[in-house]
């Protein structure tokens, strides 16, 4: 056996050259391609990571915004509810106050009506009383009350001050009102007695007014001397009304 040293040397050189050739034409380009793809992949991953981070941040922002909206809505709803509640209670109070006032008013009006009705009734009762009194009076003999009432008129006139008596005497035409017609003699007597009480009296007229029931009255254009049951009844009625009004006010 014989080692061919030339072949050995040539093969060694060949293999070294082949190593260089393959490094040049195979390994370097392929490794470069792999590295390039790795770089691109890393870049893409980094980009994706960045995008993911941004998206997460956006999501968090949106969530915070939504939360803020929700909190705002809650606050507004609460405020609205509170204001509605306040408004409702205010309206309720106002309504209650108004109702109370109206009830009071209604009560008052009812009382007024009752009062008015009572007054009317009283007036009617007074009128009725006057009618009944006149009916009763008709049973007495005619002139029975006339003299007495005339005497009361005279007394009244005499109690008046002098100036008023003079004014009354000068107040023409003066009418003498009676519930029933007087005969001539009675009229003359009346005129005479009046002239005594009222010096300077002009001749008076005689007027009949059954509403007086009983009594004598002097009606002048400016002055009036009332002396009759009607006047008494009116006075009493007025006093009654005064009492009622005083009672209401009280």
């Amino acid at each position: 056996m014989r080692i061919d040293w030339w072949t050995l040397a040539l093969q060694a050189i060949n293999v070294v050259i082949l190593v260089w050739l393959l490094a040049r034409f195979l390994f370097r380009p392929v490794m470069g391609a792999i590295a390039a793809r790795q770089t691109a992949t890393d870049q893409l991953l980094a980009d994706a990571e960045t995008a993911k981070t941004a998206a997460l941040k956006l999501e968090a922002d949106l969530k915070a915004q939504t939360d803020a909206f929700a909190a705002d809505g809650d606050a507004r709803r609460t405020a609205l509810l509170a204001s509605i509640e306040a408004e409702r209670s205010r309206l309720l109070d106002a309504a209650r106050t108004e109702t109370d006032a109206k009830a009071k008013l209604a009560l008052a009006s009812v009382e007024d009506a009752q009062k008015g009705m009572a007054t009317q009734l009283e007036e009617k009762a007074a009128v009725l009383a006057g009618q009944m009194a006149s009916a009763l009076l008709h049973r007495l003999p005619a002139g029975g009350t006339t003299d007495m009432m005339f005497a009361a008129l005279l007394e009244r006139i005499e109690r008046l001050p002098v100036e008023e008596r003079r004014a009354l005497a000068g107040d023409t035409p003066l009418a003498i009102v009676t519930p029933a017609a007087l005969d001539g003699e009675a009229q003359a007597r009346c005129v005479q007695k009046l002239a005594e009480a009222l010096p300077g009296l002009a001749a008076p007229n005689f007027t009949v007014d059954p509403a007086l029931i009983a009594g004598f009255e002097l009606h002048g254009p400016h002055m009036l001397v009332r002396n009759s049951w009607r006047a008494d009844l009116d006075t009493q009625l007025a006093a009654l009304k005064e009492d009622d009004h005083a009672g209401l006010r009280g």
Partner: peptide, 12 residues
């Protein structure tokens, strides 16, 4: 299959 080639490879 030649010893010289293998020797060259082993030498490398």
């Amino acid at each position: 299959a030649a010893l010289e080639t293998d020797a060259a490879l082993a030498l490398i």
